[in-house]
Design a protein around this nucleic acid. Structure first.
Lengths: 326, 326
DNA sequence: TCAATATATGAAACACGTTTCATTACGCGG
DNA sequence: CCGCGTAATGAAACGTGTTTCATATATTGA
């Protein structure tokens, strides 16, 4: 690997002149420039981004922390984020916790080590105190930490309302909804569940909340769970849950000879490609991954550049997509 | 952000002594060490990995190039690779080409800039000449470039044979198989298709190869394609293709009132979680993602450390998993 | 007791680009 | 012809951690 010094030597100039050519940052005589470019070409010179980053105090890398990249939700998210980051000249570092808090902490520590310029937290299971002294631009998805940390969420309250409305339209009497184990108030998507319950109760529809560990996304487990729930509570005629368990319910209903949507209305939440991959299209509350991702990246980059961020708390609309399961 | 110099000052020692404590690399008196650790603690010191990497000429990052992280094949792969890299002390940079050759080239150039220590190429659409002067440890998945570049593949030939056997067992007469557009001899998975054809022809079974752009993975497109194929060639009674189109065929068969497996035998190739997420379990030739990933990482790290790699050309067995579609 | 070795620490060079400051040359207005 | 602004380039410092080499003290063995 050749260095800028070798290029300078070959071109018969000082290193700073080469640097100026590299960055197009100051006057360089056309013939000098040409000579330098020729030297770079001949030496197959590629600037050392580590050295560059070192001086600039910027690595050009943004990290995303997810529980698991296999899950279609996070792979869709990462997909759009990487696309948009590329346009913005950033690279994406993919970090997964795999449900291990120690790993999450280790990554958090690493994030502060100047190797990344900012962090997108698509999961968080550590104590909030960890964020107090955290010294890097950061943005949270769907999880409120404190008023200083930007937060981007989907409009889950509306999502819950849209789902509720659909169950009402379907004349459901008893709706089960699956939410993540340990989902608390600071997890914004929980508000969708609260809103669903609130509206359904207002309409004299019974609800049942079942907690699951959705990150694990063991489909057969979901299928068993769905079957168990439908057998144990035969009155259930509506279900709202994430895409994958929604598919499990669809399958379980078929096994139990329950007609969808007449005996069981299914509303999936999220809208990954999974909901399209079934024989019947599942009615879905869709999060807008692309819009979401762009917003996240835009805010984070502003933070990195120390530009003011007018709105630190952004809500992205959800889209209701009617399928064949309601 | 505090630096090693500030820590040194506070502890009343030279910077190199602090470095020694950081790296545990030489004698440091216990009480000095303690003083330094206290200073690090008080200043909340976190070493600058950029500076470290700069000296060591190692960033501790490995890049993976994929066409698209959304696709379950690549997200499963990335998942396992990230897991294993983490254990080995490396971080993962996620780079997607999105089918754009220019982007691929841009990433290739970036890979040489010292920001990553090695590259996993899970896709490659550039000319092979690009690899001649490529100056970084690299490993190819499923694509042969030249004899100097390590290659890890699944045993597709056996995969093709297992699929063929299954069609024979199902007494199929006419088997369609979908393969990637522009799939050439250097794409190793193509050998699975060749082997499938060879054995089927030996057994007087007709075959038809259909080329698709699987990277796009537009499910509805696949569904239409499947439907068209089944309508246009009603004699077709067997299909081998990747997981997602396999699901499309399953759905199309159902729409056309073709019984699976009696009227149509389906063998999916890859074995992502998708094949489990259907009402019927799809018979699958499974690639062993975890084993595959570990092999890839092990070889690449050896390359990075300039250790000898005994076998530069590794074949990972596939596993036949019988489902309800054959 | 003296040499040899182990322990402990610091100064300075290094990795590689970038930027600031200084310097030289040139052209132009007055 | 002087002074000033602009063009063009270089020397040197910088960013941050690591390592080599040098130095000094303490301990061990003969």
């Amino acid at each position: 690997m050749s260095t800028i010094r070798e290029v300078a030597k070959r071109a018969g100039v000082a290193v700073c002149t080469v640097s100026r050519v590299l960055n197009n940052s100051a006057y360089v005589a056309p013939e000098t420039k040409e000579r330098i470019e020729k030297a770079m070409e001949e030496l197959n010179y590629i600037p050392n981004e580590l050295a560059r980053g070192m001086f600039k105090q910027k690595a050009g890398i943004i990290a995303i922390l997810v529980p698991n990249i296999k899950h279609p939700f996070f792979s869709s998210l990462a997909n759009h984020i990487e696309q948009y980051l590329y346009e913005k000249g950033y690279k994406l570092m993919l970090c997964s916790t795999a449900g291990d808090v120690e790993r999450e902490k280790a990554y958090m520590r690493f994030f502060e080590s100047n190797m990344v310029d900012g962090v997108i937290m698509a999961v968080s299971n550590i104590e909030k105190e960890y964020y107090e002294n955290f010294n890097k631009p950061i943005i949270m998805l769907d999880y409120f930490v404190n008023d200083n940390i930007p937060l981007v969420v989907s409009d889950h309250k509306t999502g819950g309302r849209l789902a509720a409305q659909e169950f009402i339209n379907n004349h459901c009497k008893y709706v089960v909804h699956l939410c993540d184990e340990g989902m608390v108030n600071d997890v914004i998507s929980y508000q969708g569940h609260l809103e669903l319950e609130r509206i359904l109760h207002e309409n004299n529809i019974k609800t049942r909340k079942v907690e699951i560990k959705w990150n694990t996304f063991d489909f057969l487990g979901f299928k068993n769970l769905a079957q168990t729930i439908l057998e144990y509570y035969p009155e259930i005629d509506g279900v709202m849950c994430a895409d994958i368990p929604a598919v499990a319910f669809l399958n379980a209903a078929s096994s139990l000879n329950k007609k969808v949507p007449d005996d069981l209305a299914i509303v999936a939440y999220d809208g990954t490609y999974i909901t399209n991959m079934q024989e019947r299209k599942i009615t879905t509350i869709m999060q807008q991954f692309e819009k979401f991702s762009k917003t996240v990246v835009d805010i984070l980059i502003k933070k990195i550049n120390k530009e003011p961020v007018e709105n630190i708390n952004i809500r992205i609309p959800v889209i209701f997509e009617k399928g064949d399961t309601t």
